[in-house]
Measured scan of single mutants.
Amino acid sequence: TKIIYHMDEEETPYLVKLPVAPERVTLADFKNVLSNRPVHAYKFFFKSMDQDFGVVKEEIFDDNAKLPCFNGRVVSWL
């Protein structure tokens, strides 16, 4: 699974690849690859589809939650 993530106000996003199927990747999986960053200091928002509003940034805080996936990749903002 490819996860593209944006940090603070930085213009260029980062990319990490996880050896987990897109439909199975969790917030804990993502946090594990960010071990060099203080993950407890961040809120995690993900590109998600809402039936009422369309594409939104959804906050996910449960480490066991599966991450929303679009075209085989996850897009996140920290």
Score class of each variant (00 low, 15 high):
T1V: 08
T1W: 04
T1R: 04
K2D: 13
K2C: 11
K2H: 11
K2G: 06
I3R: 01
I3T: 00
I3W: 00
I3A: 01
I4E: 15
I4F: 06
Y5R: 02
H6W: 13
H6N: 03
M7Q: 02
M7N: 02
M7C: 11
M7W: 08
M7V: 13
M7D: 06
M7H: 03
E9G: 13
E9P: 09
E9K: 08
E9N: 15
E9Y: 07
E10R: 08
E10S: 13
E10V: 11
E10D: 11
E10T: 06
E10H: 08
E11G: 08
E11P: 13
E11H: 08
E11Q: 11
E11R: 09
T12G: 14
T12W: 08
P13R: 06
P13C: 08
P13D: 04
Y14G: 03
Y14P: 00
V16W: 03
V16E: 04
V16Y: 03
K17R: 11
K17G: 07
K17T: 13
L18R: 04
P19D: 14
P19S: 11
P19M: 06
V20K: 06
V20I: 14
V20H: 03
V20R: 02
V20E: 01
V20M: 11
A21G: 09
A21F: 05
A21Q: 07
P22V: 03
P22S: 06
E23C: 07
E23F: 02
E23S: 12
E23P: 04
V25L: 07
V25P: 00
V25E: 04
V25R: 02
V25N: 04
T26F: 00
T26W: 02
T26V: 05
T26A: 04
T26C: 05
L27W: 03
A28M: 11
A28D: 04
A28I: 15
A28Q: 10
A28N: 10
D29W: 07
D29Q: 05
D29K: 03
D29S: 01
F30V: 00
F30S: 04
N32K: 14
N32M: 08
V33K: 12
V33H: 10
V33Y: 09
V33R: 08
V33M: 09
V33Q: 08
V33W: 08
L34E: 02
L34V: 06
L34I: 14
L34M: 06
L34K: 00
L34F: 05
L34D: 01
S35V: 14
S35C: 12
S35K: 13
S35Q: 14
S35N: 11
N36Y: 09
N36G: 12
R37M: 08
R37V: 12
R37S: 06
P38N: 14
P38Y: 12
V39D: 07
V39R: 06
V39M: 10
H40M: 10
A41C: 13
A41H: 14
A41M: 14
A41F: 11
Y42I: 07
Y42E: 05
Y42V: 06
K43A: 06
K43M: 05
F44C: 03
F44W: 03
F44Y: 08
F44N: 04
F44K: 02
F46K: 01
F46E: 01
K47C: 13
K47R: 10
K47V: 09
K47N: 14
K47T: 07
K47E: 11
S48R: 15
S48P: 02
S48W: 04
S48A: 11
S48Y: 12
M49S: 15
M49N: 15
M49F: 12
M49E: 10
D50G: 14
D50P: 10
D50I: 07
D50Q: 11
Q51A: 12
Q51C: 07
Q51S: 13
D52W: 06
F53L: 14
F53I: 10
F53M: 13
F53P: 09
F53V: 12
G54M: 13
G54T: 15
V55C: 11
V55N: 08
V55E: 14
V56A: 12
K57W: 15
K57Y: 15
E58V: 14
E59G: 03
E59M: 05
E59K: 00
I60M: 04
I60C: 07
I60V: 11
F61K: 15
F61C: 12
D62N: 06
D62V: 05
D62Q: 09
D62K: 07
D63A: 05
D63V: 03
D63M: 04
D63H: 03
D63W: 05
N64K: 08
N64C: 06
N64G: 07
A65V: 07
A65Y: 05
A65Q: 13
K66C: 09
K66Y: 09
K66A: 10
L67A: 08
L67H: 03
P68R: 02
P68E: 01
P68G: 01
P68Q: 02
P68F: 00
P68H: 04
P68I: 04
C69V: 13
C69E: 06
C69T: 11
F70T: 07
F70W: 09
F70A: 08
N71A: 10
G72N: 04
R73V: 11
R73K: 15
R73P: 00
R73C: 15
R73F: 14
R73D: 07
V74H: 05
V74M: 00
V74F: 09
V74C: 06
V75Y: 14
V75I: 09
V75D: 08
V75C: 07
S76A: 12
S76K: 02
W77A: 05
